[in-house]
Design a protein around this nucleic acid. Structure first.
Lengths: 140, 140
DNA sequence: CTGCGTGCAAATGGTTTGCACTACG
DNA sequence: CGTAGTGCAAACCATTTGCACGCAG
């Protein structure tokens, strides 16, 4: 999550040209909470930017993910979803609806990190851990 | 994971007919470790069952997942993978290769369950938690 | 100016669907 | 026998690709 200025800075640093499309797409992911799909993003952008191309949106999303400005969010179904929050965090998946919500919990992270510091998994080097917390929202 | 006999029993209980296709597909997922894709499964089955149809494989996989005899495994890419181990367990995702390995850790489960018993997430009822542990295998 | 990025349209590929036929119970 | 399940081929649909043009640096 960042301001326009920071985004420009980041793009420059990663050697990506600052194009209105890239800025608009990043803004869209940021604005559309709840982990939009490519289609959600296109729909939103077309309002102010009617002739953006679908192919471009996918290419831009890919390049932003590659450069760690966005993250992909896995889901059971086959459409990819995107997240502008790239620091370590978890997700609440609603079993009934398609809702995916962010879940931040430094205490939990600490607990798990500490656990894996003691109990090593042999033959495997842990880089990061994401919890996929399935359940349902009580208030819709 | 179960024997032929248990599988037949399960299918009967769920009101699913026992067809050679269903048995073969379940067996294949069980035999092919490392969370096969539908294509892996088809390939394997065609050896002994040359005229099975792709559509059937997908339908059978869906019905087995619906009836909790198999589980879907999410992955970053857009191909779905399947798992015959349906009890609560976690996955080690290799960042470099496509390898996905099972990770069972009752102590960890206990720790996390205990944690969430105290710290409720407001407005959300937790059903189950899966850890997606990203990293790399030291020995290839 | 030079090449990265875009728009467009066609191609890809995993998955789904519709329908006539088959075989499980 | 009746219906759930299968095989086949066509349809779907999210995503990718190739290419000519445009614009950021």
């Amino acid at each position: 999550m960042m301001t326009d200025e920071q985004l420009r800075e980041q793009l420059k640093q990663k050697g990506l040209k600052i194009t209105p499309q890239r800025v608009a797409i990043y803004r869209a992911v940021m604005k559309l909470k709840n982990h939009p799909t490519a289609e959600n993003i296109i729909e939103h952008i077309k309002l102010n930017y009617p002739n953006i191309s679908i192919g471009t949106v996918y290419k831009v999303l890919d390049s932003l993910v590659e450069n760690q400005l966005l993250k992909k969010v896995k889901n059971e179904k086959d459409v990819m979803r995107y997240d502008a929050i790239i620091h370590q965090h978890h997700h609440l998946y609603c079993i009934e609806t398609e809702r995916i919500e962010d879940y931040d919990d430094p205490d939990l992270d600490k607990l798990i990190t500490k656990y894996f510091k003691q109990k090593k998994i042999k033959g495997f080097k842990v880089k990061d851990i994401t919890l996929q917390i399935n359940g349902e929202f009580k208030i819709k």
